[in-house]
Amino acid sequence: MKKGNLLIVDDEILLLRPLRMLLSPLADNVFEASHGVGALEIISKEIIHCVLCDIQMPKMTGVELIKILREKGNNVPFIFYTGHGNLTLMMEAAKYGAFDFLNKPSLDGLEEVIEKGLIIGITPHKVETILDHLSEYQKMLNDIEEDT
């Protein structure tokens, strides 16, 4: 079963290796970049299904990276992690559609979030509207009638 490709972006090189080891079983391939420019290069060559990204990095912040990708029409799920005190950056990140957020240093729930991000990333994106579901809703409402 396809698991998808994961890209980890962090300027803390010491963190990249353990993250890679921890997350390798969850993905088909794990790529690493120590800055935003490197991440863009990898994304231009490889198909990436989920990005795990530090928010505060020199040269290019995580927000600048997601902004560039979104402007190019790339909607890959982004999972940001951050320490305390990056309020403005994190709220700006929200504008570009972050899939989830984790807090340093615990990164609580990391594996669960990455698994979900990869699933979303490999699932073909289909824009659904309420109209597509109206008949199903009606059927469920009938079931509720029967129940009550």
Binding site: M91, D100, F101, L102, N103, D108
Partner: peptide
């Protein structure tokens, strides 16, 4: 103890 997901 108010983490990023809560703030979002």
């Amino acid at each position: 103890n108010i983490t990023e997901p809560i703030k979002q």
